[in-house]
Write a protein that binds this DNA or RNA. Structure first.
Lengths: 137, 137
DNA sequence: TGTACAACCTCCAGCCACTAGAGGTTCAAG
DNA sequence: CTTGAACCTCTAGTGGCTGGAGGTTGTACA
């Protein structure tokens, strides 16, 4: 049996965040002591690790809620879980593509202002004039 | 002279967002008609384009506020503007690195569950067990 | 000149995923 | 039995908008 503080230490998830997950319906409400403090079992620890790992992978609370439900219903987990994971993979890839565009754009802006840093400021000029951009955004 | 709606059409920034920028101190409060409606000049349009472009590049409102101040003070813009832009470039690169790690991780999870989709769900298993991860996060 | 109605105004609430603080209670070590 | 760290609940704030309520103005047309 772990207190919320011990659980926090073991998982690296902050105490208020654990309570938040409970409130959001991701984490089952644990037993309480007679004095109303939370006491977690091993399964609570495992569930929290699951949530924390999924969050680290960037899945939304909503996605995780769904995965948690699937996990507790062994009849129909795999297809849908797979769907959630691969949808998320696609969105991660889209974000990478977008950030790479930004990277190129920013490199250009920074490089120009490196080369020629007198008079008018090129950073500000480049930011002001979208027409100078190489890609759309 | 543009109404707020025209400005919105020309820049692609939504009307409530324009008001939000004004409120946040990014966009100068424009003239008003006798009936209290906003009327923008060309310089307002340019300023909003600047903001919108900088946002599209992922700069924070706070960063943009600073750039806007720098832009209006031609004494000391370049060094600081360059600093903001290159700090942002660094953070974009960090985000790309992080997302690429996630991509690898998710690919692994999705691939496993592709290959072997019977019995226990591997998506959920992989998410639950951080020890299976190849990289830290 | 009157009227209809789209566009405008302000203010307030909500979104996500936490995080921080106030103010009070409980647990456990000494 | 006392101390004080850790716990409890509840509320509010973060960033960057977005949407709605309820009321006013601008403008095109009859």
């Amino acid at each position: 049996m772990f207190s919320i503080g011990e659980l926090s230490l073991r998982t690296g998830v902050k105490v208020p965040t654990i309570r938040y997950y409970e409130n959001a319906g991701l984490l089952e409400a644990p037993e309480r002591t007679s004095g109303n403090q939370r006491r977690y079992s091993r399964s609570g620890l495992e569930r929290l690790s699951f949530i924390s790992h999924a969050r680290a992978l960037g899945l939304s609370i909503e996605d995780i809620r769904e995965l948690v439900e699937l996990a507790s219903d062994p009849e129909r987990p795999c297809g849908e879980a797979h769907h959630i994971a691969s949808a998320h993979l696609a969105s991660v890839r889209a974000r990478i593509r977008k950030l790479k565009k930004l990277e190129r754009e920013l490199m250009r802006i920074v490089k120009i202002s490196d080369a020629d840093c007198v008079g008018e400021c090129h950073v500000i000029q480049s930011l002001a004039d979208h027409a100078l951009c190489e890609s759309d955004h």
